[in-house]
Amino acid sequence: MSSWLSMLPETLRISVPYACAAVAGVWAERSGVIHIGLEAVLLTSSFSSVAAAVASGSLLVGMLAGVLAGVVVSVGHALLVERARVDAVVSGVALNLLAYAATRLALRGLYDSASNSPSIAGFDLGPKGGDVGAMLARVLLDPVTLGAALVIAASPWLLARTRLGLRLRACGESPEAARSLGIDVVRTRVLALAISGAIGALGGVHLAFDQHRFESGMSAGRGFIALAAVVLSGWRAGRAALACLVFGALEALQIALQDVSGTSKATTLVQLLPYVATLVVLALGIGRAAAPRGLGQRVDDG
C-alpha cells in the first residue's frame, strides 16, 4: 500500500533529470540548433559534480562544477555547429560517444574503477523517516530539485516575454530575418546553448546526487527520452516538462508494480511500460506540432 502512495514523491524524483534535459532541448532547438547531445550533457555534468564534490568535500562546489561542465559541452556543440559548420547531428552523436568514453576513462584514472565513483553524502535536508510525507518533503527540499523546478517554471515565461526569448525564437524561426534586423544569430544561439547546458546539467547533477555516486553510463538514454518529450510538446518548455512528469509517473508505476509482482518474466515486460507508452504517443502523432522553421539553418555572413 505504501508503495502506491509513495509514487508521488517517486514520480517527482524520477522526473527531474528527464524534465531538465527536455527543457534544455527546448532552449537549444527553439534557437534553431538541433541538439541530440543531451546525453552528453547529462553524463558529463553528473560526473563532474561527483568528482568536484569528492575532491572538495562540498556538494555546492559539486553542483557548480556539474553546471559548468554542462555549459561547456553545450556551448562546444554550438560552436562546432555554428562556427566550425559541423553537421549538428554528427556533432551531437560525437559528443554523446565522447562523453560516454571520457567519463569511463576518468573513472578509471581517478578512482581506478570501471563502473562507479566513490560514494558522496547527499544534501539530506528535511525530515527523516519512511512515511510518504517525509519522503515528499525530502524530495521537495532538495536544492537541485528546487533549482531545476525554478528554471523549468521560468522557462516558458523567459522564452515568451523577454528580449532574449524573442530574439532566440526569431533565430530559430527565421535566422535570415533575425540577421537582417541586426541580431547576431551565432551569438544568440551560443547564449541559448549555454542556458540549455546549465538547465540540462541540473538534471545530470540530480542523477548523480540521487544515487550518491557516479555510475558509468548512468544517463541511460534519458537524453533521448527527453528529446521525444521535446518533439511531443511541440517545442514548448512547459509541456515538455509535463510530458516528462508523465513519463516519470509511468516509471514510478513500473517500480511499484515490480514490488508487487516480485521477480518474474513479467517484471521485464513491466519495465518496458514507460518506453512503450512513449512510442505509442509519438506514433499517434499527438502534438505533432511543427518544429521551429529555421531549425538547423545557418546564416551566411556578408
Partner: peptide, 13 residues
Amino acid sequence: VDGFTALENLVLG
C-alpha cells in the same frame, strides 16, 4: 518571422 505576430515582428531587435 511567420510564426510571430505582426507586433512581435515590428519590435524584434
